[in-house]
Amino acid sequence: MEKLAYIVALLLLASLFQPLTARDLEINVLQLDVSQSDCPGVTKDTWPELLGVPATLARQTIQNENSNITNVPSILNGSPVTTDFRCDRVRLFVNVLDFVVQTPRVG
């Protein structure tokens, strides 16, 4: 029973540590220079304030701030994605604990 308590404590500590370090680990392999004029009706195209935030809260925030964004999937960081650009999509790259680890952006 004592080992179980240690494991639970370790998992809780790990869940608190990961969102704090997500900002330091962000790697953007491909950055698209998207100006607001490329997507009509899009008033905001990046959300750097959502790093380290749970995906459900990030999704709600993005959709509340921009009603033109209708597609906000959660994708495990490092998973392959298509390279097509869509003005109605913001991908949320998350870790295994479902926290955002890359700056969400339109595309």
Rank of each mutant, 00 (worst) to 15 (best):
V101E: 01
R86Y: 08
N68F: 09
Q102E: 11
A5Q: 11
A14L: 15
E49L: 06
T46W: 02
I75G: 00
I69R: 01
R105Y: 13
Q102S: 12
R23I: 07
V100T: 09
V94I: 15
T82A: 07
N95H: 07
P73L: 01
W47M: 13
A22F: 01
V100M: 06
N71W: 02
F93S: 07
S67N: 11
A9W: 02
S79D: 14
A14K: 01
E26G: 07
A9N: 01
C39F: 08
A58V: 10
E26S: 13
T70M: 02
V53W: 14
N68A: 09
G107A: 13
R23M: 05
D24Q: 15
Y6Q: 12
L20P: 00
T82V: 03
P48K: 10
V90S: 03
V100D: 08
S15H: 00
F93H: 13
D38V: 06
V96H: 04
T103F: 08
D38R: 13
S79M: 03
Q60E: 15
N95I: 07
N77E: 09
T21Y: 08
R91N: 14
P104Y: 14
N66V: 09
I75D: 02
E2V: 10
P40L: 02
D38T: 09
R23C: 03
V96S: 08
L10Y: 02
F99M: 03
D45E: 09
P40N: 05
P40A: 05
T82H: 04
G41V: 04
D24C: 09
V8F: 07
C39W: 04
K3Y: 11
S74Y: 01
D45W: 03
I62G: 06
N68W: 05
E49F: 08
S67I: 08
S74D: 12
S37T: 14
